[in-house]
């Protein structure tokens, strides 16, 4: 089977700090990592491939240095990687990103499943996966935790809902957007695997490689524009009334009155 895993290199958000004056993220000196949701999706693809056989291609759009994240994917167990990198792709919003990814998927040809992370930890939009499915006109399942069954024509997933889990079946090809689980331990590539990744194919594709130059590429192809990035004002400490409801209601009214809210 042919699997495509879409990944993104993101700043390590556990180390990100916000500039208090400008409200923007301080990126200098922050290490880049593979988006954790994508890492989960890739690990799941590797687990499935161990049973079904086949080939895993990782696909990423990003600046040239995103190659490092792809090399890591190859060390973890992907077979081939493609980096979509071109000045023309710069400034893409989620629509232009999914458009570009869709052109690349079409160029790759036959595939059975596309794996995405539910969202990237930098933008947190959770839009690219669903938009990509729409662009390719294939079914999508989101909030997927695992693949339970898969055969030549269909896949059954376990997906999270507000109240619990659903088992959902879909025909192939399809797109799955993965969440992560707390117990997840990503595969740590060994030295042999890192050295082995050196001889796997990692290609770079620019806009010329995707055929027609017309399309929703980059800033021009992006309907969304970010006007300002800022962090919400810090909230003061809250007040917690820990009393049985009969007492708490009175206390709450008293408090709201004293603050002049009601």
């Amino acid at each position: 089977m042919n699997f495509i895993v879409c990944v993104k290199q993101v700043p390590d958000t556990t180390e990100v700090e916000v500039d208090r004056e400008s409200g923007t993220i301080i990126r200098e000196g922050v290490p880049s990592i593979l988006n954790p949701f994508d890492e989960f999706a890739l690990n799941e693809a590797i687990r499935v491939k161990e049973k079904t056989g086949g080939r895993i291609t990782v696909l990423s759009m990003g600046p040239p240095q995103a190659q490092e994240a792809l090399r890591k994917c190859l060390a973890i167990g992907a077979d081939e990687a493609i980096l979509l990198t071109d000045q023309a792709f710069a400034g893409s919003d989620t629509w232009a990103t999914s458009f570009t990814l869709a052109r690349a998927v079409e160029k790759l040809g036959k595939y059975d499943l596309i794996f995405c992370g539910q969202q990237a930890t930098d933008g947190d939009t959770a839009q690219v996966g669903p938009e990509l499915a729409r662009q390719l006109n294939i079914p999508q399942m989101t909030y997927v935790e695992s693949i339970e069954e898969i055969d030549d024509g269909s896949v059954i997933c376990k997906k999270e809902t507000d109240g619990g889990y659903q088992r959902v079946k879909s025909g192939l090809p399809a797109l799955l957007a993965f969440i992560s689980t707390p117990a997840f331990e990503p595969k740590i590539p060994s030295i042999m695997e890192v050295m082995g990744a050196k001889s796997k194919t990692l290609s770079q594709w620019g806009i010329d490689d995707l055929g027609d130059e017309d399309g929703d590429y980059g800033l021009d192809g992006s309907p969304t524009q970010v006007i300002r990035v800022y962090s919400p004002p810090q909230r003061g400490e809250g007040v917690i009334i820990e009393e049985p409801p009969e007492v708490a209601v009175d206390k709450l009214i008293e408090y709201l009155e004293s603050e002049g809210i009601i």
Binding site: Q67, E68, R71, K72, A75, E185, P186, I188, P189, S190, I191, V194, M195, A197, K198
Partner: peptide, 17 residues
């Protein structure tokens, strides 16, 4: 090199775990 960075990362991650 890319490999050296990845090897460092693997060792760091392995020990953290």
């Amino acid at each position: 090199t890319e490999e050296q960075k990845l090897i460092k990362e693997s060792v760091r991650d392995w020990f953290a775990r």
